[in-house]
Design a protein around this nucleic acid. Structure first.
Lengths: 253, 253
DNA sequence: GAACGTAGTTTTATAATATAAAACTAAAAC
DNA sequence: GTTTTAGTTTTATATTATAAAACTACGTTC
């Protein structure tokens, strides 16, 4: 396995930051990485030289650099579905006041590739580029349900079902029935299965060959959105996804 | 200088991709980097292991990984100004149908940190995370003009004026007069100075201490927006930035 | 204000790794 | 079917990354 240790270490430093950790000192990074501070210093200076890390001039702490935002934008800008769907996300979020997500399958995992936050619902779990569990998210269920039987078997083989909440389905037989239901009704629901207090609906987007490309979802807080409203949102989602699927027929991908 | 060569090489591979180059073969990367293909192979496999690079299963080519989008999102999500300004960008773009940008100073350079594209104007130059020239962009002029005299001197010391178009101001005396004018009128203009056929206006956003935090701009195509419309847009920008500056007074940064 | 402790930066010997040459496998081109 | 090209794997060794030691700078305590 041709892994280069020093590159791996540099990347692991980048992975130390998250939405709660915006800055870190050299000594903190040294502790977390189990590396000598002079080693960390060299790694940080290399990342800094190429703008993947920057140093706060006021307190000397390190943080993720803007080059990541730029590179990340290049990744997303190459996805036709993201560009085509952008106005639908904005429109749906404006109309429903909820948070709207776009997700795709990437290898054997789901991943969020766009998100528009609604006024009424602040959803913390999802983040562009972040992995999403296939078994406990509405998007994940959609991406699975509309796969070919072969592909679905591959995806579910040795799948690791894990509780995210008390509502999470972790029995595979029950989960397969759930996927059947998704295909029957044309949408998936995540009823507080991924995040306490959050209920989501997702609908598939197809390409010209009838393969599922992505899924669009609306996330709501159960305390603010009742069943009736949710079903109105599902109708809006279906309309949007039908249009999107129509447009994606003409995109060569 | 404690630069780690193999880390630097890995980062340079990430920098090879752009909006026109989404995928590359190992042999292409080997040629561009001047490295042996087995060295490149090890670097790619390390980046791939951590999702910074992925491999197209269909043709074996390499492309930027979604981890960059996720890390990039973490960078942006830590910026209060981006969150606070988001709805203003969306609103301004919807009202004017033009492309709206948010930019900040990062060290001695400007950088775009958010962007909402308008229906009427597709602006290619700007990209979130990308550097912006201080002398030829409206945002750059604003970020300079409202700096303290000391800071401005530091920023302009040995500044490298370069033509972006035939209209670009490259004489420092003339440029300083331009910055005076920006302060007088409360906005900056880039009249095809950065990109042929594109005219932009930008207005400053201040923090509670009266320091310029960021600039908001509207970019238009000269073929589609006349002087009168542009001045209407500038008025809308001023209103938005006044509100934003008011809100940023209460943000601890 | 001096002394001590902590954090960050620099230097450098050497242990450890990254590098590329060679060989192999697989696919594409002729 | 043969040859060429591209990608992957193996491994010897040249080169680099590593961390210990030392230094600088700043903050804390007395």
């Amino acid at each position: 396995m041709p892994i280069i240790q020093s590159v791996e270490r540099a990347l692991k430093i980048l992975d130390l930051f998250d939405e709660y950790t915006s800055e870190l000192k050299i000594t903190e990074i040294s502790e977390k990485m189990g590396l000598h501070k002079s080693t960390v210093h060299s790694l940080l200076k290399t990342l800094q030289e190429h703008s993947y890390i920057s140093q706060n001039p006021e307190d000397g702490k390190y943080r993720l650099g803007l080059k990541l935002a730029e590179r990340g934008n290049v990744v997303i800008s190459h996805m036709d579905i993201t560009k085509t769907a952008k106005n639908y996300l904005l429109d749906l979020s404006a109309k429903t006041k909820q948070t709207v997500h776009l997700g795709i399958l990437d290898g054997r995992e789901g991943v969020y590739i766009d998100k528009v936050e609604g006024e009424q619902s602040i959803i913390r779990y999802s983040r562009i580029g972040r992995r999403l569990p296939l078994h406990s998210t509405a998007i994940g269920k959609v991406l699975l349900a509309y796969q070919s039987p072969n592909k679905m078997e591959l995806l579910l083989k040795n799948y690791h079902y894990q509780h995210q909440t008390a509502n999470t389905i972790i029995n595979e037989t029950v989960f397969r029935e759930e996927l059947e239901k998704v295909k029957e009704q044309g949408y998936a629901l995540d009823d507080q299965e991924n995040e306490q207090g959050v209920r989501c609906a997702a609908v598939p987007i197809f390409n010209g060959k009838g393969h599922v490309l992505a899924a669009l979802s609306i996330s709501t807080l159960v305390s603010r959105v009742n069943d009736q409203e949710l079903h109105l949102f599902i109708d809006l989602l279906k309309t949007s996804c039908k249009d999107l699927s129509e447009q994606m027929r003409y995109v060569d991908e």
